[in-house]
Amino acid sequence: MARALARHWGALVVFGAAALVPIVVRDAYFLDSLVLILLWGALSAAWNVAGGYAGQVSIGHASFFGIGAYSAALLGARWQQSPWLGMLVGIALSLAAGAAIGYLSNRLKGPYFALSTIAFSQVLLIVASRWRAFTSGSEGIPVPFRPGFATLGLGHVAWVYLALAVAVLYWGIQVWLEHSRFGYRLAGVREDEDAAQALGIPARRLKVIAVTASAALTSVCGTLWAQYVGFVDPFYVFSVDLSVRFALNTIIGGMGTALGPFLGSILITSLETYLRATLSGVKSGFTGIYLIVYGVVLILVVRFVPDGLAGVAGRLRARRARAHA
């Protein structure tokens, strides 16, 4: 127990602080940022399962986010169904889509896999924005707000704890990936697929499972996000920018580490909130300036700290351990 605490003290600090904040702070703006930090963190953790642990770097994960968002929004707006049902439908669709992509693009590596995932998200964007009769087309869908847990019409504090529960669950899944037989075998495939296969590890099957699971986890957060924000816009939920965001958080925090996606989300989401507050007076629009910073940060991070914050922390710890020895 003490060992586990010592190993996961970072997660304890992050999630503990998130759990305590709503008790102390009642400011809606602050709580809103917190919900978004946790949701973006969980989404990045979902991306990390495929990108970080299995080495299948996707720039099309917005596909599954959009599937989750649309499933719940359409069922809610058209047939007055509960978003929880929409979440299940989203999971089912994402499992199918993730398995299909994972299986079909199995042989693809590096840039080819990234390209095929972009293409998939673009196909979904075209369908969602042009199939007006079913999806309302490019106008998007407003998600009706109906108070109550069954309809996910919650207050800010409840949203914090719901997002926190999802975040902790996803963190736990990643920790399991670091310590389980499945996770070790996946790491073997990521580091050297040929060697792993030679040892009898079913590399392809493991990669498909990782991409499929990652898709379903992403979809769950897509549903939650749509219910939280209350509007689904096809050009946002299927955008390449959004897919890059999941990856960026994870890369900044540290790919293939359990806490990395959350550290990255804290940094990037706070930066966004800060810039939005500072630059709101600038006429040419805050989004542009924010995204320029974001692009430059991405270039600098992959160049100079490719293993992210968690990687840097790990190296510092190793150095200190050596100094003590």
């Binding site: 770097v57 920018d241 990856a247 320029i292 692009g295 992959v302 490719p306």
Partner: peptide, 26 residues
């Protein structure tokens, strides 16, 4: 560098250039 680093370097460049145009020329 590795493929991941190269992919995200050019993706970052793309985001930065696109939004520079947005800020400069709306």
């Amino acid at each position: 560098a590795s493929h991941n680093v190269q992919i995200f370097t050019t993706v970052g460049l793309s985001t930065a250039l696109q939004n520079t145009a947005l800020v400069l020329w709306s």
